[in-house]
């Protein structure tokens, strides 16, 4: 394995964007060539070498999968890992918005917190955030047809996350071990979302398909989701919770067939309202 250490020369005052700061673009390039990559500091066109100090191997590696990029002080870097296809990108700390945007493969690991739009329009690969992340994880952009969000791959957030997670996603898995906010899985067409902790309001708004598992408390449920069953476990990939879940289907305003698993123990109000119907079921 070949490791590059990428450090900003100075603390960034404005957002920085570099579509070439990815393992697969470093592959086969010498450090001199890497320093010439175009980057944007705010609206100023720069070279990567103007903005960063890069320590790396003297001769380039030809196999991107072997390449690991370690970046520090990246809170203001936007679109980190833009369309990357392979290799490993590790952020030693926080990262800015749109990390992993349209990622196609490889590993993106954020040791601190991530901003919003993490893994937006993702097409493959693996993202892990050890801290918390923002809103619109694995989402489609506003205006995109539902289904243009995440299509493949996995995003894992160990801490908390924001709202509109998995908005417009089609396939793939998003796992948040902590708490999340409103509108989980809004407009989703397929794929799976797992929230270990609490979720906010309006889970599954206008979802057409897919699976959402909420291990904690929800702040109410949309009336357009109908109770279907009671099951004794729910999981997404290897994240499993062995306890009772109420299974809802919806969103009926879009004739949706999404499956919503709500933990029974954390949601006594919903459970009691549904008891009559559950008895029928």
């Amino acid at each position: 394995m070949v490791v590059y250490y990428v450090r900003p020369k100075e603390k960034f005052q404005v957002p920085v964007e570099c579509r070439y700061l990815r393992p697969d673009k470093f592959s086969g390039k010498s450090l001199e060539e890497i320093y010439e990559f175009i980057a944007y500091e705010g609206g100023v066109k720069r070279k990567l070498g103007d903005l960063f100090d890069i320590e790396g191997p003297s001769s380039p590696s030809l196999n991107p999968e072997d390449i690991e990029l370690r970046i520090k002080d990246a809170e203001k870097i936007r679109y980190l890992g833009y369309r990357m296809t392979s290799g490993t990108l590790i952020v030693e700390g926080d990262v800015g918005s749109l990390a992993g945007y349209r990622m196609r493969g490889g590993n993106l690991i954020i040791e601190g917190n991530a901003g919003s739009w993490l893994g937006a329009r993702m097409r493959g690969g693996n993202v892990e955030v050890k801290g918390s992340a923002g809103d619109f994880i694995g989402a489609a952009f506003v205006g995109d047809k539902p289904g243009y969000g995440m299509r493949k791959g996995k995003i894992l957030v160990r801490g908390d996350a924001g709202s509109n997670i998995g908005a417009g996603m089609k396939s793939g898995a998003i796992i948040v071990l902590g708490n999340a906010s409103h509108l989980i899985g809004a407009h989703m067409v397929g794929g799976s979302i797992f929230i270990g902790g609490n979720a906010g309001k309006f889970v599954g708004a206008r979802a057409q398909g897919g699976k959402i598992v909420i291990g904690g408390k929800v702040d109410g449920l949309l009336p357009s989701f109908y109770i279907d069953d009671v099951v004794n476990k729910a999981k997404v990939k290897e994240y499993k919770l062995e306890k009772e879940f109420l299974l809802f289907r919806g969103d009926s305003v879009v004739d949706g067939k999404a499956r919503l698993y709500i933990a029974r123990d954390a949601n006594p109000e919903i459970s009691s309202l549904k008891d009559l119907l559950v008895a029928e079921v």
Partner: peptide
């Protein structure tokens, strides 16, 4: 306004 995807 309603077709922002047209701009990207």
């Amino acid at each position: 306004l309603i077709k922002p995807e047209d701009h990207i």
